[in-house]
């Protein structure tokens, strides 16, 4: 069988045709590929006012073609015209997109703030059971993985620190290093990243799926504001659980450091404990807890924002989840940087 372009070329180049027929006497097998080829030939002929007769074709193929051509092809304006965009257009489009997403985020933050105001004014409502469920899922459910990760981070910190400290025979300062690093930053950051992947993604997927199923619309028309019903309990729950989990992560990290210090470098248990206590000032712990509170809010807002802005298809839910996790992690790192610089400036 010739390719469609050959036929097209033949029709264009050859003497002006009036009529086109088919000869399929020697054809003993055909499939949909054959029919779609014929339809394209017929369309090409149609554009050039060439009459086509289907008589030479197998009976079944004729019928299928008839069915396929019974309804005219639908042409959406704007669906099939493909513009090759210039650099300016691409850049402009990107900027517009970034601008739109910035405005979207600001709107969402504004809506969240309004919802919180209504909550403090005693007007907002959500189900207490929802709040507790999120607390359970995001808090207790995350304990095993938080334990594992923080313990290992404590171990790693101790080992890495020991490389330098051992040269001066100052192994005992491993305790200080691990305690300060965990309490001040690492505990909160690691917990934040775990929660972003675990809970932030779950929020986005959950709310996104509700968006796809029109459940959010149903809430709206039932007069139940989704911002209050879905978003508030999630932000509150995560803002509550993040500091608690961080505190726990700090402990596990210090335990990890202790295992290395005591087991690997022969520091006495009591000695290590005392050194840790000296290093752990209240300021360090507060900074860590404050960061974790901020992270909790950031993760919950990112997850809920992406979920609420989800498109209406299954693939949109996937994109939403991805972007929720990416947004959370990036904002956690940026927030850490800002807090660290802020503390340095303030001299804490």
């Amino acid at each position: 069988m010739p390719g469609i372009h050959e036929v097209q070329g033949e029709i264009e180049r050859g003497p002006s045709l009036r009529k086109l027929g088919f000869d399929s006497k020697n054809l003993d097998f055909w499939d949909s590929g054959f029919v779609s080829f014929l339809i394209r030939v017929i369309r090409i002929c149609g554009e050039r006012d060439i009459e086509v007769t289907g008589e030479g074709l197998p009976e079944g193929a004729q019928r299928l073609i008839g069915l396929a051509l019974a309804v005219p092809e639908r042409r959406e304006p704007g669906k099939d015209e493909k513009i090759t965009p210039s650099l300016v257009l691409v850049t402009g489009g990107r900027v517009m997109k970034i601008w739109a997403s910035l405005m979207e985020t600001l709107t969402f933050v504004g809506e969240t703030a309004t919802a919180f105001l209504r909550l403090f004014g005693g007007k907002a409502r959500f189900k207490g059971s929802d709040f507790l469920l999120v607390v359970q899922e995001s808090g207790a459910g995350a304990l095993p993985i938080v334990s594992l990760i923080s313990l290992l981070v404590g171990l790693i910190l101790a080992f890495v620190g020991s490389i330098q400290l051992r040269m001066f025979g100052a192994q005992i300062y491993i305790a200080d290093l691990v305690a300060i690093a965990m309490a001040r930053a690492m505990g909160a950051i690691m917990t934040g990243i775990i929660m972003a992947g675990r809970t932030g993604a779950a929020f986005a997927a959950r709310i996104g799926t509700m968006q796809v199923n029109e459940e959010i619309d149903a809430l709206k028309t039932a007069g139940i504001p989704p911002m209050e019903f879905l978003v508030l309990p999630r932000i509150l729950a995560l803002a509550l659980m993040m500091p608690l989990l961080t505190l726990y992560a700090d402990l596990m990290g210090i335990l990890g450091g202790m295992i290395v210090g005591v087991g690997g470098f022969g520091i006495g248990l009591v000695e290590y404990f005392n050194e840790t206590r000296k290093a752990l000032t209240l300021a360090n712990i507060w900074i860590g807890l404050f960061s974790s509170l901020i992270f909790g809010v950031l993760i919950a807002v990112a997850g809920c924002l992406r979920g609420m802005r989800c498109g209406r298809s299954a693939s949109a839910v996937g994109d939403t989840t991805t972007s929720a996790v990416v947004t959370s992690i990036v904002s956690i790192i940026i927030a850490t940087a800002l807090i660290t610089i802020g503390c340095d400036v303030l001299g804490i």
Partner: peptide, 11 residues
């Protein structure tokens, strides 16, 4: 009347 329809469409 597929053939007829087909011819007509083409035209």
């Amino acid at each position: 009347g597929v053939a007829a329809c087909l011819d007509q469409r083409a035209k």
